[in-house]
Simulated scan of single mutants.
Amino acid sequence: MTRNLMITLSAGGSAALLAGAYLFQALGYPPCAMCLWQRWPHIAAILIGVVAFRLPGQIMLPALGAIAAATTAGIGVFHTGVERGFWEGPSSCTGGGSLDGLSGADLLAVTGPRVVMCDQVSWELFTLSMPSWNALLSFGLMIGWILAARLSAGSTTAGSSRTV
């Protein structure tokens, strides 16, 4: 395995997960706020991958890619816990906010896009929701970035052509 291959797989994996998120959105599964939060680190990882190709031998860029993958995985774990009721999520997207002062007519008059609550599972496969899958796959991407960083470190030593 080479550094560039690991960067391609890791940044490409983030691109695939991001494309999957947008595909689900196009199929009628609008994202909640925490779903959107999980997308930003993937965007960062893709950009880091592009820059890492332009600056070979840099150990810091794959390390940043690993941090981006770990960040989206962490948000995915947190989101999964909110969905499963292990802990409370932000009141802005879990229905914990107050409706004081609103009448039934006020609530019926609300128009606009469908509101998706962060504590509701909108889709799952093998009992794992989208945030759960994002977390699992992103932890794998994090390992890929770490391998790329190790390979970068090996290539910066005196004449070393270290492979894993």
Results as ranks from 00 to 15, higher is better:
1 M>I: 11
2 T>F: 04
3 R>K: 11
3 R>L: 15
4 N>A: 15
5 L>P: 03
5 L>Q: 14
6 M>A: 15
6 M>E: 15
7 I>S: 12
12 G>K: 05
13 G>Q: 04
15 A>E: 01
15 A>G: 12
16 A>P: 00
18 L>W: 13
18 L>K: 02
20 G>H: 09
20 G>I: 02
21 A>I: 05
22 Y>T: 10
22 Y>D: 05
23 L>T: 11
24 F>Y: 09
25 Q>I: 13
25 Q>S: 13
25 Q>R: 13
26 A>Y: 07
26 A>N: 14
28 G>R: 13
30 P>E: 07
32 C>R: 03
34 M>L: 13
38 Q>L: 13
39 R>N: 06
40 W>V: 12
40 W>N: 12
41 P>D: 04
43 I>W: 12
43 I>V: 14
44 A>H: 08
44 A>M: 10
46 I>L: 03
46 I>N: 09
47 L>K: 03
47 L>V: 15
49 G>Q: 14
50 V>C: 10
50 V>R: 06
52 A>C: 11
55 L>I: 15
55 L>A: 11
56 P>M: 01
58 Q>H: 08
59 I>D: 00
63 A>C: 13
64 L>V: 04
64 L>N: 02
65 G>T: 04
65 G>C: 02
66 A>M: 11
67 I>K: 11
68 A>R: 11
71 T>Y: 01
74 G>C: 09
74 G>T: 08
75 I>H: 00
75 I>W: 00
75 I>L: 01
77 V>K: 09
77 V>M: 12
80 T>A: 15
80 T>M: 07
82 V>C: 01
82 V>Q: 00
82 V>G: 01
82 V>Y: 01
82 V>P: 00
84 R>C: 02
86 F>L: 07
87 W>Q: 05
88 E>L: 05
89 G>D: 00
90 P>N: 06
93 C>E: 02
93 C>G: 10
96 G>C: 02
97 G>A: 12
98 S>V: 08
99 L>C: 01
101 G>W: 08
101 G>M: 02
102 L>K: 06
103 S>E: 03
103 S>P: 04
107 L>W: 02
109 A>V: 07
113 P>A: 01
114 R>A: 09
117 M>H: 09
117 M>E: 04
118 C>Q: 00
119 D>I: 01
120 Q>T: 14
125 L>R: 07
127 T>M: 12
129 S>D: 04
130 M>P: 03
132 S>G: 14
134 N>R: 05
135 A>D: 10
135 A>I: 03
137 L>C: 15
137 L>I: 15
138 S>G: 09
140 G>R: 12
142 M>H: 04
143 I>W: 04
144 G>F: 08
145 W>M: 10
146 I>G: 04
146 I>Y: 01
149 A>P: 03
149 A>F: 06
150 R>C: 11
151 L>I: 05
152 S>G: 12
153 A>I: 02
153 A>N: 09
153 A>G: 12
154 G>Q: 10
154 G>T: 14
155 S>G: 15
156 T>K: 04
156 T>D: 05
156 T>F: 02
158 A>V: 05
158 A>Y: 08
159 G>W: 04
162 R>L: 14
163 T>W: 05
164 V>R: 11
